[in-house]
Design a protein around this nucleic acid. Structure first.
Lengths: 175, 175
DNA sequence: TGAAAGTTTCTCTATTTACAGAAATAAACG
DNA sequence: CGTTTATTTCTGTAAATAGAGAAACTTTCA
């Protein structure tokens, strides 16, 4: 497959952003390539197109699978694995948000719960500290329980809700 | 200042998570320390408590200022800078989300706009690619414009909205 | 204005992470 | 079953990042 200039720009950008999103350049570039590719690609093709080592592609595929972002498919008469990724922006976004929550929020939530419990049975504990820990904990709990509800909704409902954003605020009344 | 076991746990955890959140351990530890500290701390105190080099603290303070997470205050009769951070979870969260959006979303939004424009004036461009770029672009635009509206609301309204999450869905009707 | 106190910038090293290439393993087919 | 093809794991090196300590610079006050 030959990359068009647009594809190349897209892949390079995605690769650079990858580091900010918590994955390395290779992983993000491969994801970008699969997003652009009209058909599933095998590992060898990915190596060639992106000039990456075979092992690097292998490991990156594993990481992308860990994120749930790539699927392995097979082509008739070819025993090699071929890889695709979801092409829908919203689905992709949902997955990334979910995974990042797991990695970036859940451990902190667990830690806060633990500390909150410890502080409860601690008569000498500083009142201010107790208060702040509990403030963080209850804020995060509120946000995550809201998120859990939202993610159960079908995407179409979410779109409706998001588009209705301003209307909702008016309905509920400010404050 | 002497750290209690709870504070220490909190600081160490925050430090570890920092790397996942896109800041280094020192920066995250300092932020955690300021979150727990009952009073503003000067650089020297931070060095001692966290066993960090003076220069490291200085650079970290600069980074935290860049995030808008710390404020410099002065104590009467002391010429040294003293540092505090917002103690409210929601405010802190708002700032972090805003900053991460700037770093993690905005550049991609700009890139997609650019590519979308290029593709528009390109008769030979692959139709599929065009479609995917535009799908991503319009999804991100929808999300960010929703976010821009939400962030204008006072926190209390946001809390109401989040708490009313389920009710809203029922009001709007599924789909 | 110069000594002291405070802060920042610079330089060098240690640590971590990324990634290529080789070796090892596993699967498929004749 | 051995040979070919595909994939993964291992090992070493390069690159990036973090962070200590020294040097340079700035501010404050006597």
């Amino acid at each position: 497959m030959k990359l068009t200039p647009v594809m190349e720009k897209f892949i390079l950008h995605w690769g650079e952003m990858g580091t900010r999103w918590g994955v390395n350049r290779s992983v993000a570039q491969i994801h970008a390539l699969l997003l652009m590719s009209p058909k599933p690609l095998n590992a060898e093709e990915i190596c060639e197109i992106l000039s990456l080592a075979r092992s690097n592609v292998s490991n990156s595929m594993k990481e992308l699978s860990g994120w749930g972002l790539v699927k392995v498919v097979h082509v008739l008469g070819d025993r090699r694995d071929h890889f695709t990724t979801l092409k829908d922006a919203q689905e992709t976004f949902n997955i990334i948000v979910e995974e990042r929550k797991k990695r970036e929020i859940d451990p902190t939530l667990a830690m806060l719960k633990e500390l909150s419990l410890e502080l409860e049975n601690d008569k000498d504990a500083d009142k201010e500290v107790k208060e702040r820990i509990n403030n963080m904990l209850s804020f995060l709990e509120m946000m995550t329980s809201w998120y859990d509800k939202m993610k159960k909704l079908p995407n179409s409902t979410l779109v409706t809700l998001v588009k209705a954003g301003t209307t909702i605020v008016k309905l509920i009344g400010k404050g």
